[in-house]
């Protein structure tokens, strides 16, 4: 890679790394595996940077690699190879939700089938359109829509806020 191309790559990674890591974490619910997935994604991106950086939708391209790495990751056993199963530092509670509620959403996400989880995360965290999500996952637009609807229905139980819950009970 030429020096100017590498500078562009570094700039891109600096801007996207936290978000990509968060996406991977939402997909796999595990900080170590999220790091593995992001690292293999960005290594693949580095190799194909010239082609990728010319793409119309670079973020969609990167998400496509990331999702495939996520889906392939268990088969390959790479988690031991890249980071040595290091535990990440402990998480701190979110600003508005405690650990219990955070874990409830993560646990609910983990209960979704992998493909459905990917659809939900790309659509509602990655902010990809239905079409971009379909492209990233290599499936039809209709499939994304139906998986979104099922995923939302499955997650509805943990999305209800305490206030809404009280209203529903009263």
């Amino acid at each position: 890679m030429r020096a100017d191309e590498e500078r562009e790559f570094v700039e891109f990674v600096r801007g996207r790394l936290p978000r990509l890591h968060r996406t991977a974490y939402l997909l796999c619910s595990d900080a170590h595996r999220a790091d593995d997935i992001v690292q293999t994604t960005l290594a693949a991106l580095y190799v194909s940077w010239r082609k990728a950086s010319a793409a119309d939708n670079l973020d969609g391209y990167v998400h496509r690699i990331l999702v495939r790495r996520y889906l392939d990751e268990r088969r390959r056993g790479w988690s031991r190879v890249l980071l040595g199963d290091h535990p990440a530092p402990s998480a701190s509670p979110g600003a508005d939700h405690g650990i219990g509620e955070r874990d409830a959403l993560i646990t609910a996400l983990r209960a979704l089938p992998k493909g459905q989880r990917a659809v939900v995360v790309l659509r509602y965290f990655g902010d990809l359109t239905v079409e971009q999500t379909a492209e990233a996952l290599g499936c039809s637009v209709g499939n994304v829509k139906s998986q979104c609807a099922r995923g939302l229905a499955a997650l509805r139980g943990v999305l209800v806020t305490p206030a809404e819950s009280m209203r529903e009970q009263s």
């Binding site: 990674v13 890591h21 939700h97």
Partner: peptide, 19 residues
């Protein structure tokens, strides 16, 4: 709002892995 453990990845190391 989900609190995600911080990544251990560093940009320089990622570039080295890519190289």
């Amino acid at each position: 709002e989900i609190s995600v453990p911080p990544t251990r990845l560093e940009v320089d190391a990622l570039v080295e892995v890519g190289r």
